[in-house]
C-alpha cells in the first residue's frame, strides 16, 4: 500500500483529516509518521498543526491562506507522492531511539502483582516481556505529553481498572487494554500502573516540552530503587 493511499476529509473550515485506516496497527502508524514527516518537510504555507494519531493525521490550517480546500488537498497529495518516490514505504531505520529507565513494581508500580495474576505470568515475566519490546510513539493525546506507545506484547494486555484513579503519579508506566504508555504529569487515569520512570516527560519550560515525540522509538530499561532515586527528576 502506498502512503498516498488515504482518504482526506475536511473537519470544518480549517482542518483536514488524512485517514490511512481504522485500526491500531504498527505498519499503518508508520505510514502516518511518514506522511507527517513529508508534510513537515514540504512546509505548506498557513499550515499550523500536523498531528499524527494511530491511523490518521490532522492538518490544521489558516482558512484565509487556503480559501479553496480542494487546492490544499491537491497540495497535500502532491507532497505525499513526492516523498514516496524519495523514501519508499519502509519504516525509517534511522528513527531516534529514546531509552526510558523504569522502576517496576512496589510503590512505583502498585498494579504489577495484579497484572501478573491477570496474565498468569510471574511479576518477573511481566517485567521481562515489557522491557523486551521495541516501542514506537504512535501519538500524543489525552493530556500534554501523554505518549501512546505501540508494541506492547499481546500477552500483557489487561483490562482497564473498573474505577479510575483520581491521581496517577507523574512518570507512571501503565497498561490499558492492548496499549501501554507513560503518564507525563499527575492525571486521573484508569490504566494499570506497573512501574514509574524517574525522568520528567513533560516540562513546559523546556524546549521541546515533551520528551517523547510522535514517531520516536522507545526502549524501556528496568532499574533498581537506588538508580530510580539517583535519576529522579520529579518534584519531591
Amino acid at each position: 500500500m502506498s502512503g498516498t493511499d488515504c482518504t482526506i476529509e475536511p473537519l470544518g473550515e480549517s482542518a483536514l483529516l488524512l485517514r490511512f485506516g481504522s485500526i491500531i496497527d504498527r505498519a499503518l502508524n508508520d505510514r502516518v509518521h511518514a506522511a507527517a514527516s513529508a508534510l513537515r518537510t514540504t512546509a505548506l504555507p498557513g499550515v499550523e498543526d500536523i498531528a499524527p494519531a494511530y491511523a490518521s493525521l490532522l492538518l490544521r490550517f489558516d482558512p484565509r491562506r487556503w480559501p479553496d480546500t480542494e487546492v490544499l488537498v491537491g497540495a497535500v497529495r502532491k507532497a505525499l507522492a513526492r516523498t514516496e518516490v524519495a523514501a519508499g514505504d519502509a519504516e525509517p531505520a534511522d528513527t531516534a531511539v529514546v531509552e526510558l529507565p523504569v522502576r517496576y513494581g512496589g510503590e512505583h508500580g502498585p498494579d504489577l502483582a495484579e497484572v501478573a495474576a491477570l496474565t498468569s505470568l510471574t511479576q518477573g515475566e511481566v517485567i521481562a516481556r515489557h522491557v523486551a519490546s521495541d516501542y514506537r510513539v504512535a501519538m500524543l493525546g489525552f493530556a500534554p505529553g501523554f505518549a501512546y506507545l505501540l508494541g506492547l506484547d499481546a500477552a500483557l494486555a489487561v483490562p482497564r481498572l473498573s474505577s479510575p484513579r483520581l491521581r496517577v503519579p507523574a512518570g507512571s508506566v501503565a497498561i490499558g487494554g492492548a496499549q501501554t504508555g507513560v503518564y507525563p504529569s499527575v492525571l486521573p487515569g484508569g490504566w494499570r500502573l506497573i512501574g514509574r520512570t524517574p525522568l520528567r516527560l513533560f516540562d513546559p519550560a523546556h524546549a521541546p516540552p515533551a520528551r517523547l515525540a510522535p514517531g520516536l522509538r522507545v526502549r524501556l530499561r528496568a532499574i533498581d530503587a537506588a538508580t530510580y532515586a539517583a535519576l529522579s527528576e520529579h518534584a519531591a
Partner: peptide, 8 residues
C-alpha cells in the same frame, strides 16, 4: 497553535 502533535 502548532503543538497538537505533543498533545497540547
Amino acid at each position: 497553535p502548532g503543538l497538537a502533535h505533543l498533545g497540547i
